[in-house]
Amino acid sequence: MSHSSHLLDVQQLKTYFYLFDGVARAVDDVSFYLDRGEVLGVVGESGCGKSVTAQSIMRLIPDPPGRILSGRITFDGLDLVQLSMEQMRGIRGKRIAMIFQEPMTSLNPVFTVGDQVAEMFRLHEHCSRHESLERAVEMLARVQVPAPEKRVHEYPHQLSGGMRQRVMIAMALACQPQILIADEPTTALDVTVQAQILDLMTRLKHEIDTAIMMITHDLGVIAEMARRVVVMYAGKVVEEADTASIFNHPRHPYTRGLLKSMPRIGDRAEKKRRRLSEIQGMVPGLLALPEGCRFHPRCPDAMAVCRRQLPALELLEPHHKVRCWLYLSA
């Protein structure tokens, strides 16, 4: 696999946090790639290292306590891990943009939303104050904020959660980035608003040809948007495949567990009453990761070897990788 063919190529990324109680291996040897214009889903429960991966790509890991220990993040021929902070600032926002989970707290409460969107044009395209505000109005119109020429002068607290997330999207897409990292963009929103935001993102993705890395724990969002899926568990990639394979033939017991715990509309009417299954136990703390396969304490199919040795991420069939002893001969 040649590196240059992908828009973004993350290889053997390790991001650790050096805490008072020990070392948290939040992202441990993670590799994946993102192609031009595609939507990649990154799935896992909370605390699996999805957000840390995203923040590592943006080089937003607070140091101390965090540090990108090793690995390469190749973007357009550049290794982002090696860039200086100044070089990185030319990429952040302009070529790789990010939106966050909490629209309620992600906008600065003391500046108008217009100001905050316009700042992108002033910063990256050196527009005048007046011109950048005009373009902010245009941008708000594109994300379907009603009465944008009035809204630009309002403060975040005057907008609803859905509107704020639209403003965040407007801000992120202002400079037409090549990659948009969306860290749980719909988790904090109402279901109906979630659908609107996802629609909006899909539409804008085509308009400005942005690749999206969609981080979520909601498999519904993945089914809706993503072409390929990376499943993460406790800082490791456990499965990677195209969306259809993930939903139709999930291989890793964790992926299967996630799918089983997803409610399906109509299930109860069609079949007999069935309880939603859950994955037993919790994601292990990053300071006390189990030996061997990190999922084995919760795994229904755990074998003796799982307790001793970490399986490798192996190609099972074309475009389908799994990290599980069930499919490997030890």
Partner: peptide, 20 residues
């Protein structure tokens, strides 16, 4: 969070600290 947003925008440290 909004400071994280400010960094993610690509703002220089002086702007993040003294403005945002």
């Amino acid at each position: 969070d909004y400071i994280k947003t400010a960094w993610a925008k690509g703002l220089p440290p002086l702007k993040v600290i003294f403005k945002h």
